[in-house]
Design a protein around this nucleic acid. Structure first.
Lengths: 138, 138
DNA sequence: GTGTTTGCAAAGTGTTTGCAATTTA
DNA sequence: TAAATTGCAAACACTTTGCAAACAC
């Protein structure tokens, strides 16, 4: 059902987020949002941009990922204490993390059940419930 | 029941892990293992050591935390992509992460239920199931 | 035109490493 | 005294930032 979004959709989403659709932002948004769910780091996205002949600096990739995260277009996943990973799928779901390869993989929804979510401590509100299942070659 | 472990216990645990009980390792191990469950970063532990007049370099703190982690005396928790956090409680349990203060807090066992743990992908074995509930001041 | 965004290079942060000096067994 | 460990400073990897040039509206 949810096919590749037409170009205008991406442009519209940037506008809605208050982000000027510059050449760099548009190119990165298209790479990320028109190709299904993806897990990636800043370096990975930068490398992919360059090999697709999208000229963009690494600094801009970092800044753009930050802006996209704030805008809710992507989300950050915490699995490594020395590198940021992101996911284009912002809906509630969880991850496998392959320790050997540093790859992320979605856990199918029917494969995990968090039956009870804890009450947030007094004075706080819940932001997210993230489950990471670490695996390695057996 | 589980009172403060006597000095010899810590020494014995280091020996069992194949780690020579040097002054630095012994001091750090005592700070960590004789004071209940603690969440901390390398910098935090280093600062605490210095203020307790335990002379130890930051490099040694890093190296020691790594060795303790491999030995299973402590475990690492992944909540921040720019800093490593550790926990002296190595048994199965989950965490709140206060985004405002960067503090970790245990989730009481009866407050969370992971009813179904996913099958690890083919060719992999499960290492851990970590739940992080992010909260912030409301 | 005016304010925003980019790219570069420099700076910053947390962490690791090489190696001489020290310590442990 | 032989092997392991420490501390320092330098090196590292990843990320952020200052600022002039380029760009969007």
């Amino acid at each position: 059902m949810n096919k590749v979004r037409p170009y205008s959709k991406v442009l519209e989403r940037l506008r809605k987020a208050g982000l000027r659709p510059t050449r760099q932002r548009l190119a990165l948004a298209k790479m990320l949002l028109e190709n299904g769910n993806r897990h990636f780091s800043a370096e990975m996205l930068h490398a992919e941009a360059l090999s697709s002949s999208v000229r963009v600096s690494l600094a801009t990739v970092y800044n753009t990922l930050h802006q996209f995260t704030i805008a809710g277009l992507i989300r950050e996943i915490y699995v490594d204490s020395s590198r940021s990973y992101f996911d284009t799928n912002t809906s509630k779901h969880h991850h496998f993390f392959h320790e050997d390869t540093a790859q992320l993989e979605d856990i199918p929804d029917d494969q995990i059940i968090v039956a009870k979510t804890p009450d947030p401590p007094a004075g706080t509100m819940l932001k997210s419930v993230d489950v990471v299942v670490r695996v390695s070659a057996s």
